[in-house]
Design a protein around this nucleic acid. Sequence first.
DNA 1: CTGAAAGCGCTAACAA
DNA 2: TTGTTAGCGCTTTCAG
Lengths: 357, 357
Amino acid sequence: MTTTIGDVAKRAGVSAATVSRVLNGNYPVAEGTRGRVMDAVHDLGYVANAHARALIKSTSGTVGVILHDVADPYFAEIVRGIQQVADETGRLVVLCSSLRDPAREITYIELLRGQRVDAVILTSGFVEDDEFLMALHEQARGLLAQGSQLVVCGQYPVRAAAVVPDNAGGAFRITSHLLALGHRRIAHLAGPSRFSTTQERRRGYEAALSAYGIQPDPALVVSSDFSRDGAYGSCSRLIDSKVAFTAVFAANDMMAVGALAALRERGLEVPRDVSLVGFDDLPISRDLTPPLTTVVVPMCEMGRRAMELAITPPGGQGRIVHLTADVVVRGSTAVFVQPGGADGAGTLQTASGSGAG
Amino acid sequence: MTTTIGDVAKRAGVSAATVSRVLNGNYPVAEGTRGRVMDAVHDLGYVANAHARALIKSTSGTVGVILHDVADPYFAEIVRGIQQVADETGRLVVLCSSLRDPAREITYIELLRGQRVDAVILTSGFVEDDEFLMALHEQARGLLAQGSQLVVCGQYPVRAAAVVPDNAGGAFRITSHLLALGHRRIAHLAGPSRFSTTQERRRGYEAALSAYGIQPDPALVVSSDFSRDGAYGSCSRLIDSKVAFTAVFAANDMMAVGALAALRERGLEVPRDVSLVGFDDLPISRDLTPPLTTVVVPMCEMGRRAMELAITPPGGQGRIVHLTADVVVRGSTAVFVQPGGADGAGTLQTASGSGAG
DNA sequence: CTGAAAGCGCTAACAA
DNA sequence: TTGTTAGCGCTTTCAG
């Protein structure tokens, strides 16, 4: 049997109420009594039942986080930020991996609602799906009704506190960087089209192209999931399709890793033959060879901000936090040099031909 | 106000007990009644209070995990495995980052005890410290007393279910690999000495050396924390100390990344000038340049096994799971070739001299 | 300063 | 098949 407050009370020769007061320290208790109670607590190894407490108090001191997968460094960094604030404020965080399945996310929110979490932070990325959106609205309402709230990381069409990275802006800037380097045939390794993140980053890419008077070429855009292997596959297909390009913009850094592998495997050297950029700036990106030029998404900061919103009562100002996304130039991009003496359109074959170095 | 089972009962025109029975589906309820109850549940957006439930049932369906930091890919992979099993069995996992602070770990176990978690999984690595060990014993006992249990990942001197990777064996094998390649001056980038992981891996390293009749040279072992930056620093110091070495065994892959950066910065090319190996086989390791030769620790599997132990009642057989740790040879190691025409002792300077490529 | 008693939301006998 | 009742372990009035 687990020891209860009654056991402690008995051993200390006081009432349960007194034990409670000692433990919570919010009422005056005689020094001697306090001592006897603490001794009893210690002797018995007593730890108060948080569920019994949560049943009374309105707050549970717990925040739920729904993400794709902790093993994805992007989310791991966000969780790190969340954890930091949780630690600083004595809260607990419960993690749920949705693997980007909308139905599972709804199920998790409901589960977390049952746990009476103080808030749920949703980070996996919005998926265009009417059924999901409706269910999400319902859950958001339910959360609010029980004195909790929803906080989202990213662009979601819901009334909720949010911290949103500048996906479109970052994509615009990194594409512009490539353009400024002289690249004109810039491929884009996109994510699954149903995600708002995918769309925003693609939009920024196309906007930059247009700003340079370039008509976006659909043949230069290939999709896959957000993973390393997915991008390895889509980049391989792109290369094999013989479409000419001199630079690649991967929708995120993990995908850039896959692209790098695909490029290299086919004898294309980065940045000599092809410039490569990503998005996110994962911790590992600076240690790739070459170090990756990318867009800095302050993931840890995102997590911190999200958690700060989560522990602030809903309603009120400043509940939409916008985060910047600036380019960091490293070694994976270079000025586009006209290969050989030709007209420069079909660069791919030329580059690949001299890629054995 | 949050809606309770009473509200649902009233709306459906039944008693609270009936609602409970419908929701739990463990007692016969008339079809019509069930329908009315479900309607009421839906209309009200009712979600049962898990705390009230946990107060009655012995199990909370929640498992606590204490780790260093989710943003560390080693732990992220472990958590991934834990999450998988949690998902499969309808459980929730709450994460606590200890940042390897023993005191904080104890505090967390206590906090989780209050939450009446079904088990706590401890993964940050054992620290030699009598006070910590005593407190840990006490907590393990407390956990057991309340019908919960402790599960550890790694070598801990406590009576608890455990999943332990073969640190010493893996280190022995990877060092032997280097030795077989002809290397004799093998440096070791160790972790903080107070961790059992550090000691085990170092022990394997020294055992392999001894097996080859080589007396371990303390000058070849430098310590830092387990991070990329830590190893970058210790490796830099090692190089600057002018101690001769032709291979480096980093205590983990993150540290190998740091070592690679340090080596490269000083004009030492891997594996031409120096062979480099790590430990863990993080997902990124195969994508480094060169791809890292390392020891495969099945981290995700570790997490799965730990979770399986966590959801199995304590006591009984097979509560210590041993995991293998085999070498995977990739591009970061090469046969040691006598540099120049000299006697081959002071390889470092020679190699570095020709390292401009 | 301390104790008695009510009640948080739910489930599990026990009746009906 | 369903309702009534008694708690689960704790906090919090309300008395004293």
